[in-house]
């Protein structure tokens, strides 16, 4: 498989996953506001700013907006093309990558992605969003899930498909960890939090809902919502498809499918780092994590996920980007020798 093609498939599915996760985050937080009382400007800013931080573009945000309000944050995360991680930017990028590998994906997948692209780019999308944000986010999520399903059910599960899987799970692991980090200011730097207030419980429920984890969580832990159980579920659960452990497991599996190297061994840095992170997650307990500080832990986790992405790029893609000038020199030398 062409390295460039692998790269595009990887980013196509990563960007779709990103768009979906941002839709989840904004949607749940908009709904959460309806449950909160005594909202003044300061509290609102406190609510929205972490959401901007979650997507990691604080300076970009303040370059475009003065204050973090529902209006400015949603605009920034949904429609602003200047934000490279907004929903609309992510969908454009996903489609651009799909276009580059149009010959590698099925007509069904392409049509749905293309439909989503045209939807978010029309004035109609803004209209839907204005009338019912929830309906709008639902459309984004449904389309993303449809694309994931089409990828699974219509694409041949070859090497390129595994690159797409690796991209999707890395992105999802990253976003789950960032969603979990939304309320870190309410937590002590180290150790378990004290008793949870009613508002806190609502906010932690919102975190679960951002990850479509509400139902799964309840069936496991009952209706009691506290940070320790939520963090344990979203980080360490073995079977929940959006938990970090699950995602790293899948990503690790995809990497091994690409190279053919069995688990417990590695042939490149991406496999080494993914395998190592997976073992850490498999043999960690939530109490240890809280003891060291959840926020710090998540910070390091995101760094590790990032490293896996970089290592994957170095192992399979980077040879693509030789310098053209150098290559011209090489060829001229070769041609000189022949003459």
């Amino acid at each position: 498989m062409l390295s460039r093609v692998a790269n595009s498939l990887y980013w196509m599915s990563r960007y779709i996953e990103r768009a979906e996760n941002i839709a989840r985050i904004v949607d749940v937080n908009l709904q959460l506001l309806l449950d909160l009382r005594n909202l003044n400007e300061e509290r609102l800013a406190k609510h929205w700013l972490p959401i901007v931080l979650t997507t990691g573009d604080e300076s970009q945000f303040f370059a475009l907006h003065q204050k973090a309000t529902a209006q400015s944050v949603t605009e920034f995360l949904v429609f602003q093309m200047e934000n490279p991680n907004s929903i609309i930017s992510s969908i454009c990028q996903a489609r651009e990558n799909a276009r580059m590998v149009r010959d590698q994906i099925t007509i069904e997948l392409w049509e749905e992605l293309n439909r989503l692209y045209w939807f978010v780019r029309t004035p109609e999308a803004r209209q839907v969003w204005k009338e019912s944000p929830s309906e709008f986010f639902q459309q984004i999520k449904s389309s993303s899930l449809l694309i994931i399903g089409l990828t699974y059910a219509t694409l041949i599960h070859n090497e390129g498909w595994w690159f797409a899987q690796a991209g999707k799970y890395l992105e999802r692991a990253d976003k789950t960890s960032r969603i979990l980090d939304l309320r870190y200011e309410a937590l002590p730097a180290r150790g378990l939090p004290q008793a949870v207030s009613e508002t806190d419980a609502l906010e932690w429920s919102a975190i679960l809902r951002s990850c479509s984890a509400w139902d799964a969580y309840k069936s496991l832990n009952g209706a009691e919502v506290n940070p320790r159980l939520v963090a344990e579920f979203l980080l360490l659960n073995e079977d929940f498809p959006r938990s970090v452990r699950f995602c790293v497991d899948e990503c690790n599996h995809a990497l091994r499918k690409i190279s053919g190297v069995a688990g417990g061994r590695f042939s490149n840095d991406a496999e080494k780092l993914a395998g190592r992170l997976l073992s850490e997650l498999q043999f960690a307990t939530i109490d240890e994590i809280f003891e060291a500080g959840l926020h710090d832990y998540l910070d390091r986790l995101q760094g590790k996920l990032n490293d896996i992405g970089v290592a994957l790029f170095n192992a399979y893609i980077v040879q693509n980007f030789t310098n053209l000038e150098d290559e011209i020199m090489v060829q001229q030398e070769e041609q000189q020798q022949q003459q």
């Binding site: 498989m1 062409l2 390295s3 460039r4 690159f163 690409i258 040879q319 693509n320």
Partner: peptide
């Protein structure tokens, strides 16, 4: 067949190759 861009191809010893993941 594969669709390639110039940057996907490489010439060595007057033979053309494409850069793949393998």
């Amino acid at each position: 067949i594969e669709i390639v861009e110039g940057r996907d191809l490489l010439v060595r010893d007057a033979r053309v190759f494409m850069r793949t993941t393998k």
